[in-house]
Amino acid sequence: MLIETAAYASRWRGVAPTAKALFALAGILAAWLAQSPAVLAALAAALALAALLGARVPLRTYLAVAMPPLGFLLLSCLTMLVGPGPDGVWHWSAALLPTAGRTALRSLTILAALLGLVLTTPLPDLLNLLRRLRTPELLLDLMVLCYRMLFVLRQAWDEGVTAQSARLGYRGWRHAWRSLGLLAGQMAVQVWQRAAALQMAAEARGYQGTLRFLPAAYPQARRQTVWAALAGGLLLAVAAGDRW
């Protein structure tokens, strides 16, 4: 997972998640406020540059991560631009072009805001932020377990596929389906076994029914949050100026 790797390696890894989230939120709100394509494009560029230059996210990573959503965006916008004409025949219609253009730019801006956050902040840091925002405990527990087990299960999955390949499990279409079904079934059974093992391990460490962890400390959080608020305010001001 490219985002994951980039986040752990990011230069802004040590910046308080609150600050980074605040900046991303400001970016999203600004994208919703702004009207003109030029301002939206400027906002998107500012947010992307913050990640690329400020946090030094490698350009190659950035593009690789952005590519799939951009493909979806293109497809959706093209869909908006076809439609039945008065004669009932489908053809290109420019009627929705302004909407499609603005939607695409707004989408890009919000994507850039989000990428700026997730490419610099590992998920556990975001979960801590959600904890401080009083997310229901059950959801937090599910997220913590899901995140950890994701890697465990993925490794198990990859090893399973490798072991099946070694026994020619993927030599053809039918074989591949059969192998996948077997593997997924076996892994589904593992879900219960792994849950039982985790339960036991948790009890051995005095588990009281909730998964509690100590959040990391960010000594410079206050200063960083002020900076983020200022930068975010600037984005909002530009967007607001555009609207009114």
Binding site: L138, L142, L145, M149, L153, W173, M187, V191, A196
Partner: peptide
């Protein structure tokens, strides 16, 4: 059933894994 907390957590991970899966067809 307090132990279902872990079960749902692991199940969520499995669902995520399946959702990231590329199927042969």
């Amino acid at each position: 059933h307090p132990e279902r907390r872990m079960l749902l957590g692991v199940a969520a991970a499995f669902a995520f894994l399946l959702s990231a899966l590329k199927l042969p067809s």
